[in-house]
Design a protein around this nucleic acid. Structure first.
Lengths: 239, 239, 239, 239
DNA sequence: CATGAATGAGCCTTCATTCAT
DNA sequence: GATGAATGAAGGCTCATTCAT
């Protein structure tokens, strides 16, 4: 009889948490398929029978671990409301958080992708995770477009998928495949590429070019305009 | 007692090829860990025992399949020498090929990543694969920089890693996770983002400011055009 | 540390009874081997641990359930002392009770047989159960033989085993295997067969040859009547 | 991959047969639920992995064993066509065969009943087994009724179920529960009871009573007639 | 007395690998 | 070379039983 947290006394709660933690470590270290239920139990210091008091299978444990990780990533990646008004700085701040969220969980998210490829029931969690980041990126871009600071002809969602993917993928290459870079440079470069890619324009007040477009025609016109990234913070950027 | 093709008579050669092909299909359909040696044998129409005449293990078969796939991707992604002189068009052509190479092998490359995460000996193949694309992208960028067409402050390799990752990742999201997009739009958007991100400047002779598009067709056509980033300031972005 | 009822306070007595009842239901529904101690506990509304306060094992619980059932069968199958003097009517009354006793407990007695096949210690209970019915049947037959109403050459015990078995077995086939029959017809037929088989003779005073029935009702009524086997020769069938 | 006999070479055929035989013995000795796959393998002298080459589970093995046993019982219980013309002698012959068929397989048939109680898919086999015997008995009775040798008012099927059950049940009590009797006496008594129960009349030619009834009315009348079993062979009957 | 968490023996099943034919 | 039968290590899971609270 598998038990959820709500039902448990403090002893059970502790055991369950120990299994989740042990599972998380084991998955990170060995990969999904290589993890044996007994590995997890040994790590958690319980007998393998106990495992089945709390989870019906390794898969179920992974579901819990994955949900935990996804939750953490949501939390960790929220740009505080007091973010700087400077759009570039906001992009940079977001990229830093994004990269760090991935730094903490890259392996597990890859695992989630792997499991989702086979097991339909994990697909949902994965899509949920991606959706949050995509939506956040798309909304940020839309806001900039509305403020006339970004190319209005870009499809916000598609752009967010692509540029978000750039950050996500770099995190993987950087952390898991050993591509050499320091965090500062990485964030700066990612942010520069991102900002330029969306045609980020400096704030209107300092805009050396025509006033922000408001009509579709104007928007279209602006798409082909020069991007002034003069005031972008690129401290630390460099190879 | 693994046998390479060179040693074999035509019968053996055929059997071996059947196993590789069957393995490739099986891996694509079921994922690395779910593939059983028996699945492969059944698909290839040979008995269990025969498998071990040619391969020492499932892993060895996968190594062969992966090498084949990597080879195909190299071949498939080479931008013909008769590529258009227009830098943007070249970027677009490369992205199209890149995306298609992934369309054909996305699942298997993810699998390679998965196996590489655990098995050191696959790491090399994966890095090799990535390196080819990274180098190609970095060299392209360096050429543009040398021609004064791209921001010279960008680190070519790092930029190639990031922007290449963008394409690669998008291919995965698009094909494996069902993100909706048509190939044309995808390639156009990726290319626009890429071109702008590196600060691509049009060849001096080209019209830097086409009149604003009015019709959808024009808009679409224009979307895939060169971005005029002539006046972009990149001071502070060091190489 | 098994506790019998005598030792217990009223709370314990209630818990124990709940377990026995729950066990009985569980055994009936799922069969001996499929019953888990947990099933019983859940059904009785007590925790695992509590079970072992009262019973040392599932087997011990079954022993108690079986004893209860056997006791009930004894009670239920006693033909009242005010039974009609008519021997056929007594046979019929006995068969009705017998059949009903089985209707109530067929599944559990089969289970007892099953357990007894493996576990020597249950053999006794089963034999006891059978013995009561056999003895009762044998004594009935002996009385009829003494009264000159039944074939004196039949071995009372062997005959009782066989004809009792006929009823017992029919109950099983009827209830457990879905052989179609209504109780009335079943009892009438069993009784007719039984009566004829032992060569039952009607009491001298009774009409040995009622006029042939014409209506269905009469036919039905007559079907359950005594068979006149007065002149049957049984030479050669020794006792 | 489970293998049926048809597909196998002689080696496989031998192994499979050994498993079936070993399973049969194991089931007989220990009972269904107590049999472990490994017991069977050890007895058959193969590794437990081999078991799964031929059967998917213990249940599947039992299905095969049960089918084999049922087949044997069919074969073993056929009364040869050259059976004596004397109805009683035929009854006796049939009972002897019936009893012996059960003597050989009593335990396994009880097991089949047990499994069928839980597993719907075994129900069919059990009912098939019973049906063959019931039908055979019912047809025998119907023939006697048509010949005016047995009570025509008896429902042939119901009677066959009951009297067949008597034999079947006795076999169990005798063999499995240790009721003491020698085969001769048992068969003689069963046959006498059976013959009398159906109102078996001697051949018409020697019938001391009215000519056989042909109309319903006559049939009904005859039901209450005396059974002359004078000429019945009861050799060996006696305690 | 009751609870429910923990235990671990025991059984089931899969599948990579070997090997005689 | 090919075959397919046999092997047994490796893991999964269940459930009766114990025990501290």
């Amino acid at each position: 009889m598998i038990v959820k947290s709500e039902t448990l006394g403090s002893r059970g709660r502790r055991t369950r948490a120990a299994l989740v933690q042990a599972g998380r470590e084991a998955f990170e270290e060995r990969g999904y398929d290589a993890v044996r239920v007994d590995d997890v139990c040994a790590r958690a210091g319980v007998s393998h029978g106990t495992f089945y008091t709390y989870f019906g299978s390794r898969e179920e444990l992974f579901r819990e671990v994955a949900a935990t990780v996804v939750g953490e990533m949501f939390t960790a990646s929220v740009v505080g409301p007091a973010a700087p008004g400077d759009p570039y700085a906001r992009i940079e701040a977001a990229n830093l958080l994004y990269l760090r969220a991935w730094a903490a969980n890259s392996r597990l998210v890859r695992m989630l992708e792997q499991v989702a490829a086979t097991d339909e029931s994990f697909r949902g969690l994965l899509l949920e995770l991606r959706e949050v980041f995509v939506r956040r990126g798309a909304e940020g871009l839309r806001r900039l477009q509305e403020q006339g600071l970004a190319d209005p002809s870009l499809d916000p969602r598609l752009t967010a998928v692509m540029l978000g993917g750039m950050v996500e993928h770099f995190a993987h290459v950087w952390l898991d495949l050993g591509e050499h870079a320091d965090e500062r440079t990485a964030v700066a470069t990612l942010s520069t590429l991102w900002a330029r890619a969306i045609g980020l324009t400096p704030a209107p007040s300092r805009d050396p070019l025509p006033a922000p477009a408001r009509t579709p025609e104007q928007a279209q016109a602006q798409k082909n305009r020069i991007v002034d990234v003069t005031s972008v913070s690129t401290k630390g950027a460099g190879a």
